[in-house]
Nucleic acid binder design. Sequence first.
DNA 1: CCAATTCTCTGACTAAAGTCAGAGAATGAC
DNA 2: GTCATTCTCTGACTTTAGTCAGAGAATTGG
Lengths: 293, 293
Amino acid sequence: MTERQIEQVRRFNRIVTQHVGALEDSYLRRGRPLGQARLLHEIGPEGIEVRALRDRLKLDSGYVSRLLRALETQGLVEVRSGKGDGRVRKAFLTPKGRSERATYDTLSDELAASFLAPLDPAQRDRLVAAMAEVECLLRAGEVELRFEAADSAAAQSCLERYFGELAQRFELGFDPARSNSASVAEMTPPAGFFIVAWLDGEPVGCGALKLADAITGEIKRMWTSPSARGLGIARKVLRALEDKARETGLARLHLETNRTLSEAQALYRREGYAEVAAFNSEPYAHHWFEKRL
Amino acid sequence: MTERQIEQVRRFNRIVTQHVGALEDSYLRRGRPLGQARLLHEIGPEGIEVRALRDRLKLDSGYVSRLLRALETQGLVEVRSGKGDGRVRKAFLTPKGRSERATYDTLSDELAASFLAPLDPAQRDRLVAAMAEVECLLRAGEVELRFEAADSAAAQSCLERYFGELAQRFELGFDPARSNSASVAEMTPPAGFFIVAWLDGEPVGCGALKLADAITGEIKRMWTSPSARGLGIARKVLRALEDKARETGLARLHLETNRTLSEAQALYRREGYAEVAAFNSEPYAHHWFEKRL
DNA sequence: CCAATTCTCTGACTAAAGTCAGAGAATGAC
DNA sequence: GTCATTCTCTGACTTTAGTCAGAGAATTGG
């Protein structure tokens, strides 16, 4: 990365914190100490466990307790023991607290509007588009890949969602049992690998590498959660699997895909996979690809 | 502005403050109280007058004084009376303070780099471009227009810089005396108007409207500071002058321009000015424009 | 030269933010 | 059933952040 880029990022940081930060502070605290205001926002309409609150805001337990007491005496919050574990207490908004939060919401809208107000419509569109792009790329930067056991909770949750989606998208539905196998055993080292993409502590994508023979690997189970599309997760996963394949000494990778998955095909072509004749009889496949490593 | 836009701005605010804000705090304070850290950054390599410091950070005079004392006892800062006015004191960084600031600089670079690091080169370019766009548009939103007396300090500073630039750009140089007049009197209500664009308390652009006859106005002295180009300032100034012209009951606007000022011509065309035959003998003009209001 | 003003500093505050060491109840492991 | 652990809370702090009133020097306007 170049000096120019770093310079731009720094300038951006400065300007944006000035704008957002300065305004947020004066605007959104509504005369309340920052600590209390933060708590109030963090307690959603569903309530939140006190320990979760502590965790999220990274505050001392005594401090949180005191802040909650303050909000309670203002009649904004109610803390009561939830059902289940009697030690854990949960904070809820009272009606008054809810309306306070609603006011905050309105102000937050106003703050956002104040960014747009001085601009003309064309500039507004540009600003919004650029903000979406920044947001998307910052989030993309937060994605973390980790190889996981194929039978881990995260892996299984990905696979379930993946199969569910295939069932919806394929003309004929999808039944994993009819498809060529990629069993847990086949995706467990050293027979294969399963990788999970994480974002904000949630699994949002996956992919698997299955060693077919001494020189051939198969890419399987490539999936990205709809909530995390457009962040380049699939590409990252694919590249990570390719690295792993190279490391393992493989010379080529195979994969097949269904014609309804056009984004996937575009990705494979972009990443250097060439369409080849069918190398297996996967019933759900319409295209077969190969890449030499 | 639409709900979708506001939603996007809010999401952007949230994400960015999380990223920048959270990191900046823990990263850049280096164990120092925020107030001290802010002061340390604001005292540049040249030193800074204490009152300027107060102004910039909007802090109480007693508070600043105390913070400076704290930095002094840490050996980071030295406060001494400057030459000239004996009341005004100026804060300077000691060598130790300078190195402390250098460390901060490095960390700030690292922070910026941490945004870029997880991305691939194409994504980095996209992020940097989007950040530049956001920065530019946020700054554009901060521009303020004010009608000012044509002989005010701001107006004169703009005009001086404007003439200086013309002298550089025109093949034949530029001598205001040879050019068609737009004297202070002619730009003073009700004979005419002078408008100044402000950004961060600095004049960064100007424009004038001179009433030629009962139905005709002339646009003159359109200029934007090089430091503020690309923010749409000229367009804003032009539109404000047009509004003023309409208000005054004018039916058409005239303006002329030199062939070297191609951006200006593009602007005039975009804003609905049509090129017409020369309506005066301005020696520096190559193109004459008219717009019906 | 005098009076008003400007600039910085100190003393004396208050409020918020945050830390630390337990106490007391509930739970989990064995 | 006992003991260690978990979770929340209170009391007793410290440090930051920020305000206010005024003192004392230097400067400016007339």
